[in-house]
Design a protein around this nucleic acid. Structure first.
Lengths: 256, 256
DNA sequence: CGTAGCCTTGATGGTGATCAAGCCAAGTGG
DNA sequence: CCACTTGGCTTGATCACCATCAAGGCTACG
């Protein structure tokens, strides 16, 4: 299966971060679990490793467990038309994956990179949730964040011009990396062009062309196929905001 | 302002329904508040009325209150490019509107029809939430539902063909009316064509043409501009699922 | 009856999906 | 170390589809 159980009691335990509902924290994420709670959750959870490309669960499966990502990237998706996938979300460390509806998973999940994650059985979690208001509040915060991200995803999908979609996608990735305090100007693309295409609702070819368009406009620069640098933020923002056709006509590029 | 405060202590109090997380309830929504809890929430809330077209709150406003719709339809939206609106969601009776992020509303909200709603101040709600695990659990269930709906919205927006988007939109409305136990085969469109367009990410003209296309395919029939009947469900489903171009070429329509 | 807003219908052009071929990188076996 | 293969990525051409502009209905309300 490509998964290995490496329960290590020495770990600090599950970790979840999200943006606060009420207090203003300046865009930074809050750590939502005390060390003690993490330790108590660690007791009922196990640590799993999934190799790149491995299916974590499938849509419609009985939802026996929820996952808390420690490292790596997960995608959740729906299979539509035998060939076509729709990627619902990319999930990163400290996110929760696999909230059920009526006891079943609503999407499928797969490891985009190698992934390590806590597996928390719902049977134990449910009773613990009911008793611990703080834990419930954590779930509320995290759900709010996921909701906002799903709404941003929907907003991205309404953009009618391919480069605008890609520009907004880059902003989302950068925004996430910033929230986690990772390196600032270098954006890493852990997923394939094909995955990006299935997320933004375009063909892989259009994804490629759009990256090229943003690069030739001077908004971004590629170091290699998975690493890019934002060299002109306002240019990227303009590209992302642009609903209108061809902001720069391809032919007359500022005749110098 | 077009709003009137009609606090009526005789009301049963806020009512919220959602789909269960764990137990399977056969697609029906669960009522999530006991009569006693509703009464206690009623004490801290007031009933407001908004006329059609009135703004309920604006993106970025300090989020002083959360709303629970009693009757009518609300849209939440973002203003993008001076002209362009993106409708994030339509909200119906028993839904919650106005969950904040960092103390501010993330979208604007406006009454699509005349609306009555409970207004629940967050200052009181927050402390009550922390003490009442059942209330928190309610919010979790409701957030899960909103999340799933946002994800379905995103799925809708990836459809590349206009009639497929509209077909899925009709299914969503019907699905909602079914969950509320309203009339079965007659679907009511409370919002304007323009609102639909801003929700599905198309032009108003394309919305009109798509409705027409579905009607001429025999999937739906319009009674008037706001009421339609689904006459061929499988045809509608095929239209909604269809990612491929022109399932029925416009020219050769079964030469009779 | 008149006016205004919403909705529908009609043309045209731009944009991206699609098909197809070439390119690059990583992994494999000789 | 190098030929070969494989999969992902990029580039090139064509055509259907929808956004746009524009005009004509329909409905509601005064």
């Amino acid at each position: 299966m490509g998964t290995t159980n490496l329960h290590r009691p020495g770990d600090r335990g599950p970790s979840v971060t999200a943006i606060g509902l009420w207090g203003s924290s300046g865009g930074k994420r809050l750590h939502l679990l005390t060390d003690e709670k993490r330790a108590r959750l660690a007791v009922i959870s196990s640590v799993l490793r999934f190799d790149k490309g491995v299916e974590i669960y499938r849509e419609g499966d009985s939802a026996d467990a929820i996952f808390n990502i420690i490292g790596g990237v997960v995608k959740t998706y729906k299979n539509l038309d035998h060939q076509t996938k729709h990627i619902v979300a990319f999930l990163f460390p400290e996110d929760l994956v696999g909230l059920p509806e009526e006891g079943k998973y609503v999407n499928s999940a797969e490891a985009v990179t190698a992934v390590t994650a806590y597996r928390i059985p719902v049977s134990v979690l449910e009773t613990r949730l009911r008793r611990d208001p703080d834990l419930e509040f954590l779930v509320i915060c995290k759900l709010c964040q996921e909701l906002r991200e799903a709404q941003r995803h929907a907003l991205l999908l309404t953009k009618h011009h391919a480069p605008a979609k890609i520009a907004m996608f880059v902003q989302m990735l950068e925004n996430y990396q910033c929230a986690r305090g990772e390196s600032l100007e270098e954006v890493y693309l852990p997923m394939s062009r094909c995955d990006i295409a299935d997320y933004v609702g375009m063909s892989a070819e259009a994804v490629s062309r759009s990256f090229h368009a943003l690069a030739s406009r001077g908004a971004i620069v590629f170091r290699d196929r998975r690493h890019l640098k934002i060299v002109n933020r306002s240019c990227l923002e303009r590209a992302a905001a642009n609903l209108e056709p061809h902001q720069l006509p391809y032919r007359q590029q500022a005749a110098s």
